[in-house]
Amino acid sequence: MSSPFWRHYRTLVSQGIQAELADLERLVSPVLFALTTLLLFAFAIGDVEPALRVHIYLAETFLTALFALQINFSRLFEPDRQDRVFDLMRTYPVDHTAWFLAKYTLVLAMGSATLGPTLGFAAFVNQSPSQPLFSWVVVGVAAMALAGLAALGVLLSAMTLKANARQILYPLLYFPLATPVLLAAVQSSQLYLSSGQITADVRAWLGLLLGFDVIYITLGALLFTELVDES
């Protein structure tokens, strides 16, 4: 397809990826942050009753992921902020929805690069011989959570682009808005891991997660245009 929309989308995605690769620290540091956080959780929590193990594992994993993803999200527009690239982009004939989708794609990719190692490492260090913790369903839940959070992340990033004290403002806006995701992700995974099957309760939580995804992706696409548009 070579309509302007997809041309812009492809150009922006490849540019975003190149910008990430040009500065590898940006990709690696959230993962290192996640590993450090998991280590801290291990120190804080110590030995866990087998009955509580699954719950604790999921709580610390998703919390860690939420924290680490915040780093990915909040720095999304960092390359564009330098040298007024962002402003120049607004004077260029770029389709704003394509711009949002490109940023969304990019943050999904970066988020997966953070989320994958986090989930794997957390399951690896928390497992016991009788309780293997890694589960593809949990990975699926995390992916669903990422889908909504990424849209929220792009939106907040564009919103706080011109704000002072972004570093502190960002988490203060992101965490309260992300609480439903954390809750739904932990609850659905826990219900699944304790019963071993996708029960009606699990499905209800996943429905909430899906609702969150739909709302944030829709709002993201609509409101991002409003944020970058002028006149």
Binding site: L155, L208, L223
Partner: peptide
């Protein structure tokens, strides 16, 4: 830019309250 950023957050907050309420009620 402040008008737009604040407006977007205002809408986000309103859209979020029902989800938060629903999730917390279930929880």
């Amino acid at each position: 830019s402040r008008i737009r950023a604040c407006a977007v957050l205002g809408i986000l907050i309103f859209a979020d309250v029902p989800i938060i309420y629903k999730s917390v009620t279930w929880w």
